[in-house]
Amino acid sequence: MTLHRASVPVLLVDTYPGALRTARAAGVPTLQAELLSREAEEGLADQPPDRLLAATRDELYNALVCTRLAPELGRERVYQLAPSADHLLHSETGVSRDLRGKVLGDGGL
């Protein structure tokens, strides 16, 4: 909502309507859809994103979204929250740097 208040165009996408309720009430544009679905693709057709921030609690999902949209947006325009410290240290659960978006923030965010 901070970006919206600063007049930065944003669109929040989530599958759960409850997650979007506060943003909608504040006038932030939202789209209720699974970001990798055809429904989201159609919903974004009129307003294609310029940048992406994948900010779920699931590092692997964030990486998947970034990997999927990087060819369209450009790798320099896809970001994801920094993985938690345990993911950075655990070789089996961490995600290859090549498959993630650009990391935003630190593991505590």
Rank of each mutant, 00 (worst) to 15 (best):
H87S: 10
H4G: 09
A45M: 03
L35E: 07
R68K: 08
R97V: 04
G105N: 13
V10D: 09
R75P: 01
A55K: 05
T22N: 09
A26T: 00
T22E: 12
A23R: 02
Q32W: 06
L11H: 10
E42G: 04
L20I: 04
Y16I: 08
T56V: 02
D86C: 12
V95G: 04
Y61F: 04
P49M: 05
L104E: 07
G107F: 13
D46P: 00
V103N: 04
T30L: 10
P71T: 10
E42F: 05
H87C: 07
D14K: 10
H87G: 03
A6P: 03
P83I: 15
Y61I: 02
H87N: 14
L35K: 03
E42A: 12
R68M: 09
E59T: 11
S96H: 12
S37P: 02
R24E: 08
L60I: 11
K102H: 06
A55V: 13
L35R: 01
R24Q: 08
E39P: 02
L81K: 15
L52F: 05
Y61L: 08
L64Y: 12
E41M: 04
A70Q: 07
A63S: 09
L88R: 07
D50M: 04
D58L: 03
V10E: 07
P29A: 10
S37A: 02
T15Q: 06
L44H: 01
G74F: 00
A19V: 06
A63G: 03
L35T: 15
R100T: 13
L44C: 08
M1L: 09
L44E: 03
L73H: 03
A23E: 03
S96Q: 14
R77S: 11
L44T: 06
E41C: 00
G105E: 08
R57S: 15
Q80T: 15
L88M: 05
